[in-house]
Simulated scan of single mutants.
Amino acid sequence: MSTQAPRRRPGGGHPGSRPAAARRRPSRRPTRADLYRRKVVRRRVGAILGMLVVTVVVCTVWFTPALGVREVEVLGTADLTADEVRVAAAIEPGTPLVRLEVDAVAARVRELPRVAGVEVERVLPGTVRLTVDEREPVAVIKSPGGVHLVDATGKDYATVAQPPDGLPELEVTPDALGAAVAVLTQVPESLRRDVLGVTADSPSDVRLALGGGREARWGSPADTARKAAVLEVLLTRKGSVFDVSSPELPTVS
């Protein structure tokens, strides 16, 4: 009796098996919903990472001395020293720059009598820059205790042993100080150079002592520009007293 081998089906392999290609599922292309979900996930992960970075930066800048004050730089001083300004500013080393109260620092520096103004700047990574505007004297008041310096605002801000060269002397009552300084600072520079002193018993009785023993009776600070123009003409005449307190009716005697 003869036996025959079972026939193979076309394509080979066991009769009960499928080809490998038939067993693999075809790959599915992502749908729009899948792409949208992936995009949303990426955005959320990016947002979380961004928030973490911002949080770390804020904590570093705000709460740690990493960007704290290491140096206080002082500019613009003449008679003051940089150390005097630093002491007045009272800035604690290591204070985070972003937490530095610049208005409070400026207010403390302005308490120095010689300071007319100050600019406070934060300079990364750890410097505070103080640019000081010192007062400049326009006149002096002599007293037994020394020579008082007076600036353009009429402030008596310092006392020195010797008066600076070229500044006129004020001999005025306290209520007339502002008027005397106003006249002195408003007259033209050509006239101001000839003023040796200013006297005033009241705000309406300002008088200028000029070189050559001459005197200009000014009156009040009103119409200073007009009075100065009239006085310039009067000074071409001979005389010792030039009254321009009423510029419409000036006199020379």
Rank of each mutant, 00 (worst) to 15 (best):
T3Q: 11
T3D: 10
Q4T: 14
P6K: 14
R9N: 08
G16Q: 07
A20H: 12
A20W: 07
A22M: 04
A22D: 10
R24N: 12
S27T: 05
R32H: 05
A33P: 00
D34L: 08
R37C: 02
K39M: 13
V40S: 03
R44S: 10
I48M: 11
G50T: 14
G50I: 05
M51E: 05
M51F: 06
V54C: 11
V57I: 14
C59Y: 12
V61Y: 10
V61F: 13
W62S: 11
V74G: 06
T77R: 12
T81Q: 13
V87H: 06
A90H: 12
E92F: 01
E92N: 06
P93S: 03
T95N: 04
L97F: 00
V98M: 07
R99Q: 06
A104R: 11
V105C: 06
V105Y: 01
A106H: 02
A106R: 04
R108L: 01
V109Y: 02
R110Q: 12
P113C: 08
P113M: 08
R114T: 04
A116S: 14
A116K: 13
E119V: 12
V120T: 05
L124Y: 10
P125H: 05
T127Y: 00
L130D: 00
L130F: 02
E134N: 12
R135F: 03
V138P: 01
I141V: 15
S143H: 11
V147Q: 00
V147S: 02
H148K: 15
G154N: 13
K155G: 10
T159G: 07
A161R: 15
P164R: 15
P164S: 14
G166T: 08
L167D: 02
E169D: 10
E169Q: 14
L170F: 00
D175L: 06
A176V: 02
A180F: 04
V183K: 04
T185Y: 07
Q186M: 06
G197M: 10
A200H: 07
D201V: 08
S202K: 04
S202T: 13
S202D: 12
D205W: 03
D205I: 00
V206W: 01
V206L: 00
R207L: 07
R207H: 13
R207T: 15
L210I: 02
S220A: 15
P221V: 06
R226A: 15
A229V: 09
V230D: 09
L231V: 04
E232T: 10
V233M: 05
R237E: 14
G239T: 11
S240H: 12
V241L: 07
V241W: 03
F242G: 08
D243I: 05
S245G: 08
S245K: 04
